[in-house]
């Protein structure tokens, strides 16, 4: 499974980056390809490219606040959750996404 995603939190200092790291580590452990863009208080970093978005099976938005550029994901399967929901049990969270996509015949 190829994941692209965005993390963003209210202050844009801590959870945005911690959640990113957690997602990347969990994705690696589960054997998924993953790219995460952070939208923190210093703006967007590691911005996703159109090619990466196109190649992705799913878009994971781990966000507590409004993000910019959501229209880039039009037509893609999107999973949206609060950062704390993704942080709590990240491996399981990603595996459930995979399961759902498989059931829907999208993987």
């Amino acid at each position: 499974m190829k994941i692209v995603g965005i993390t963003a939190c209210p202050t844009g200092i801590a959870h945005t980056y911690i959640t990113k790291k957690k997602i990347l580590e969990a994705a690696k452990a589960c054997g998924y390809e993953c790219r995460i863009e952070t939208q923190g208080s210093i703006g967007a970093e590691d911005a996703l490219t159109p090619e990466e978005i196109k190649a992705a099976d799913v878009v994971l938005l781990a966000v507590d606040v409004k993000i910019s550029g959501e229209e880039r994901f039009k037509g893609k399967p999107i999973v949206k959750a609060r950062t704390e929901d993704v942080m709590r049990n990240t491996d399981k969270f990603l595996q459930q996404i995979e399961l759902k996509l498989r059931k829907a015949g999208k993987l």
Binding site: I13, A14, H15, T16, Y17, I18, K21, E25, S41, I42
Partner: peptide, 16 residues
């Protein structure tokens, strides 16, 4: 300044 913010963010990441 963004340098400070980036450093704080990096510290946050390290806490994992």
């Amino acid at each position: 300044i963004s340098q400070h913010i980036m450093l704080l963010s990096r510290v946050a990441e390290m806490l994992l």
